[in-house]
Design a protein around this nucleic acid. Structure first.
Length: 593
RNA sequence: GAUCCUGUAGCUCAGCUGGAUAGAGCGUCCGCCUCCUAAGCGGAAGGUCAGCAGUUCGAAUCUGCUCAGGAUCACCA
């Protein structure tokens, strides 16, 4: 709403500038924000026109202000070299507030993606271990960006490619076979993914033990009973590929354990998928595409029999697409999988949420798909996110510094629970466990999403996730307080009282109205840039302003009933905006906390 | 070696389509609960926006170089 107005002003001022300077060829007018609210609501710097006019920028600003008679709504305040515009925010308040309240859960959404089909791939776990903090960033981002794109009216298909085969999967299977003694997640009471993960770790131990034994006595390798762990894992993979019944049965059993555990974690994290792909079903895909590329002449068969693609046009080297023995590689599978997906659900766009480590891979993949003539190759995006590091450095599984997703969530829940009890809010809150869980989730999602995706981030378990300051729980708390006000307002009698947005004249009120008006634009920007941090910032700014406002002003007991009701409507609109933003960030909304 | 990403307060991060005095949170220090939830509010201290040069009326923002950190450059996934 305010944006349209600013654009209208921009056009009007540019038109006047053209007439003032007697030329159509003028630099584009920039739209800025005055540093202080009392200086206006939009700023147009006049510097670029000073030279053309042979006058100072300040003179241009005042000249334009006095010449511009027919202009959009608002008041011109030439401020030095800037032509500032002040809008009558209170006069627009009712319209903005009514729109937010009227649109309800739809407020902030737009139509820009209507009719578009967007597929988004994220998570993609291995079925040999539980999720860790790095996965959580991926999952948080994937889910949030999915919501953002849905908010543009597009159809979104969330897909997850389960990496359920390969030598790393065989390692946990092998260790279980050797050391499992028939125990199961049920018998040990463990969550399935943790159970299987334990055997993956056990395999690494076994490797070390064997290596050490061999160092001490190299002759043991000649013993017929000697088993080399890596060779055994490779052997198991061959058996798996050959369809060996026992290996397949073990694989099925252990995969189910892991997946049951992983999906429990997803549920706890508020993550869901529309379609699952399994690597066991896709790993052979892509060979046909490579053959087609050979026919098209975009790939070439080397003397040794392998098939390669020349990446010189994009400034890279060569890449092998089929091994000498004709088997596929990671990139081959991804080619085939992309094609398969487009057949399954003809997307207009496909977003891969994958760590920045794979920038090279996706650059190559997208180029290859365009070589193969797929028009949709131009609409493939790699949403690359940075690593989550610890204050001491990288997380390393070998050193046991990996932060487990389930552990982290339950630790945060415990902290939140302790906080609820310390504040004596058990009764108000109702279900303490559930509330604590939602606070933990809000804290975690906000923490992970407030940083721009591409940046590496530091996770400090000791103090980075606190519940005060610029955090998810602060936002939840703010929303809960507004809810509380609205509950009390409901109990009051406002019969015969009319609200009036024109009464909302103090700076905080104007800032809040503007924040509400600007929210749809924030959603647009965040969706276009796949960047939830824009929403996080918008919500935090609004919450901060509200907290200040609420501290200084009475809402239910304002000077007049009209003012009270007007303020109630303002915070009701604000709450609607916050709730809608929460949904985009995976922050649970709490009516009380 | 090449390519890409990053460098802003003690720490974690915003700000980057150039524009007015570079902002938050945490931490430190000082205040505020007879008033709609103190997970809150206010205040103080804290900056060579890594460095140098360039473009520009104007650079944290754009360009180049240098330095520092990270990632990638497999017939692994």
């Amino acid at each position: 709403m305010l944006n349209e107005l600013k654009s209208a002003w921009k056009m009007a001022i540019e038109k006047e500038l053209r007439s003032y300077l007697s030329t159509d060829d003028i630099p584009e007018l920039a739209i800025g924000q005055p540093p202080k609210p009392d200086m206006g609501d939009a700023a147009f710097p006049m510097f670029p026109y000073a030279k053309l006019a042979h006058k100072s920028p300040a003179a241009v600003a005042s000249d334009i202000a006095s010449r511009l008679a027919d202009h959009p709504e608002g008041e011109m305040i030439p401020t030095g070299p800037y032509l500032n515009i002040r809008f009558d925010i209170p006069a627009m308040a009712d319209k903005i507030i009514d729109k937010a309240i009227g649109d309800g859960d739809e407020y902030g959404r737009n139509d820009s993606g209507r009719g578009r089909k967007v597929m988004i791939e994220f998570s993609c776990p291995n079925t040999n271990k539980p999720l860790h903090l790095g996965h959580m960033r991926n999952d948080s981002l994937g889910e949030s960006v999915s919501q953002l794109i849905k908010a543009t009216g597009a159809d979104v298909m969330k897909v997850n490619l389960i990496n359920n085969r390969g030598v790393h999967i065989c390692k946990s299977m092998l260790a279980y076979k050797m050391f499992g003694n028939g125990e199961t997640p049920e018998s040990t009471g463990e969550k399935g993914d943790h159970f299987v993960g334990r055997y993956y770790v056990r395999f690494a131990q076994w490797e070390k033990e064997v290596e050490k034994a061999r160092e001490e006595n190299p002759a043991i390798a000649d013993d017929p009973s000697f088993v080399d762990p890596d060779a055994a894992a490779q052997e198991m993979l061959r058996a798996w590929e050959a369809g060996d019944a026992d290996v397949r049965a073990l694989w099925e059993k252990m995969n189910k354990w892991t997946l049951d555990g992983l999906f429990e974690s997803y549920r706890n994290m508020g993550i869901s998928f529309d379609k699952l792909y399994y690597e066991s079903e896709t790993y052979k895909l892509g060979r046909g595409e490579v053959m087609r590329g050979l026919d098209l002449g975009v790939f070439r068969r080397e003397d040794d029999g392998s098939v390669q693609v020349d990446l010189a046009p994009i400034g890279l080297d060569k890449k092998v697409l089929l091994r000498r023995d004709g088997t596929t590689l990671y990139i081959t599978q991804d080619i085939g999988t992309a094609v398969r997906r487009h057949e399954d659900w003809p997307f207009d766009s496909l977003i891969y949420v994958v760590a920045t480590e794979q920038n090279y891979h996706f650059k190559v993949l997208f180029y290859i798909l365009s070589l193969l003539g797929y028009k949709w190759a131009d609409e493939l995006h790699h949403l690359a996110y940075g690593m989550v590091n610890l204050p001491e450095g990288k997380m390393k599984s070998r050193e046991g510094t990996v932060v487990d997703a389930d552990d982290l969530l339950s630790e945060l829940s415990a902290l939140a629970k302790a906080e609820i009890i310390e504040k004596g809010r058990e009764n108000e809150v109702g279900d303490v466990e559930e509330t604590a869980r939602k606070i933990a989730l809000g804290a975690l999602n906000y923490y992970l999403l407030q940083v721009q995706p591409q940046r590496d981030m530091v996770f400090n378990p000791k103090d980075s996730i606190s519940f005060s300051g610029n955090t998810g729980p602060y936002l939840q708390y703010t929303a809960a307080r507004i809810s509380s006000i609205l509950r009390k307002a409901d109990a009051e009698n406002f019969d015969g009282v009319a609200s009036n947005g024109k009464l909302l004249v103090n700076d905080d009120e104007k800032t809040l109205v503007k924040a509400i008006a600007d929210f749809p634009e924030a959603v647009r920007k965040a969706a276009a840039g796949y960047d939830p941090s824009i929403i996080a910032a918008a919500l935090y700014d609004a919450a901060k302003t509200f907290s200040h406002y609420y501290h200084d002003n009475q809402i239910l007991k304002a000077e007049t009933r009209e003012l009270s009701l007007s303020r109630i409507k303002l915070v009701k609109a604000l709450l609607q905006m916050m709730k809608n933003g929460f949904l985009l960030l995976g922050i649970p909304y709490l009516e009380t906390m």
